[in-house]
Design a binder for these strands. Sequence first.
DNA 1: CGCATATCCTGACTGC
DNA 2: TGCAGTCAGGATATGC
Length: 279
Amino acid sequence: MPELPEVETLRRDLERVAVGRRVVEVSVTGRRTVRRQPPSEFSEALTGRRIEGARRHGKYLWAPLDDRRALVVHLRMSGQLLHFAPGAAAPLAEHTHAVLRLDDGAELRFVDPRTFGELFVTGDLDPTGRPRPLASLGRDPLVDGIDPSRMRRMLAGRRTSLKAFLLDQHQLAGIGNLYADEVCFRARLRPDRRTDGLDARQAARLSRAVTEVLSEAVAARGSTLSDGRYLDLCGGPGGFQHRHAVYGRAGEPCPRCGMPVERSRVAGRSAHYCPSCQG
DNA sequence: CGCATATCCTGACTGC
DNA sequence: TGCAGTCAGGATATGC
């Protein structure tokens, strides 16, 4: 379940190894991976183009190309983007749905067992170069920033659970189930709290928690759970899973007070929290 | 409006 | 040991 920190880690890796490279060959074998346009159109649009950057908004990653278009990537649940250095080409892993060969002999491979992830090329960019198909996303907490007063305004504008608010990509973009729980713990707020009942002090705490948790997770290169689903561009695991306070720790002691972490269902998702520290 | 539910899909896990 | 059933969740669509 790649979320903002995992996608940001990939973005940084891409900046290092792929920016400046030209795509010399594209192969799409997945049936669903390229679905906003015919796969042949996708391949033709990408072949011969130079990758000019690596950008991110929420869980979307995109690479501006040298013809004012962009390659957009979303990993959804199980997608992986892997880089194989020149000469290090291993056999294609199962569920490899697309391969981009670069002009230095390296390969970028898109692997995705559950096929929810997608790739597309678009020329529909706004003046800042952001793909317009992503225009409905809310602010990215790290790219755009989030502050207490803005957070308070966003919270007051709706009557829903804190969990549903944090998961809503049209409010803040990039937080998924794992980081929603970690953010709530850091803010000492229960995930089933209603957003319109929070005061200025609590909104400020939430705002800080979002920035801190996501920044720390980026610094640790994201979270790789026991299923090993998320890997960085070179196939390495992240390190933030060792610092999870509540996510996936039901029944284990809260790191702050020692009470067993509880698990319930909020907004249709599993929610982990400390019944004592989070009010 | 906000919520639940179904959908897409595979792999890991549970219970018999 | 094997097999059916359940669960996991990102985004979107639909119904209440």
